[in-house]
Every structure is written in structure tokens, then in C-alpha cells.
Design a protein around this nucleic acid. Sequence first.
DNA 1: GCCAACGTTGGC
DNA 2: GCCAACGTTGGC
Length: 155
Amino acid sequence: MAKRYWLFKTEPDVFSITDLKKSPKQTTCWEGVRNYQARNMLRDDIQVGDGVLFYHSREKPMNVAGTATVVKAGYPDKYQFDPKSKYYDEKASKESPRWFLVDIKLDKMFKNPVTLDEMRTMKGLDDMVLLRKGSRLSIQPVSAGEWKIVCKKGG
DNA sequence: GCCAACGTTGGC
DNA sequence: GCCAACGTTGGC
């Protein structure tokens, strides 16, 4: 399957790209996604080798801070089975897990993080899911063209 | 299966 | 911190 591209949102005070850099092997599992649309993408669509734009939300200025690569495709999120976790879901079972996650590895930290305002003014990003009004998905598809434009700008 | 109420997200 | 947009829940 052809390589695809995605955008993962995170709040930097919860997990930033610097945290990813400091992680063992600069790899982390992307746990805690509890939205069905995002779940479907994690489970069905995101493949090893796919590119990820690492987006910081709720930070000033909001920005794409760098890129990552998917190193492990969709598998059940173990936190859904852990009653102590805030991600616990009593309706999930190991036989039919409800929530999935992938592992990603840091690729590049952008020299110049690309801010939301900049992306609004850049050519070729008009259809980007992130820029659509009311777009709240924490995992979004990104086109190859959008990927190229953002990476080029980021350095 | 509809939809009002409620909770959360996230840009501002 | 506010609040519009959106997703989920639960009563009917």
C-alpha cells in the first residue's frame, strides 16, 4: 500500500515533541484516543512507514512541531483494560477491544515550527482537515501535497 | 431511532 | 477563561 500521511494532535503540556525526543528510542505509543473516527483510522488505515505531522494544540502559537514515522500499526490500547487508568473503558474486553493505538518514532523536529496562522496563508493547504472549521479530530488524514508543503516550510 | 441534555475540545 | 462546535448518552 502506498505511503500515507497523518496529523496527530497533542497538547504539549501533556505530551510534546520534546517528550517524544526524550523517550526511549524516541518512540512512543499513542494511547488514549477515545473517538471512533480516529479509532477507525488507527485500527484500519495507518500503516508502518506512514508519515505523521506532530501538531501542538492549545499552545501559543499552535504549530506543527515536526514529523514522526509509524513504527507499529494498529493494536489494542492496553489502558482500556486497566481500571486504574483514566483511559479505562468498562465496556471493552480483550476478546473485542474497543480502542486501538499505533507506535510512532520521532523523525524530525522542525527548525521552524509551522504555525497555524502560517498554514492559513500558505498555498495548497486550503483543503487541509486541520484548517476546516470545527475540525476537532485528534487524528487526521493529510494529503501527500500538504505533507510536502508543511515539511518544506518547517525545514 | 430520535433528539435534548450534557461533556469535551480547542481556537480565540 | 470563554464559548461555539461537535460527539456521546440516555430517556422516550
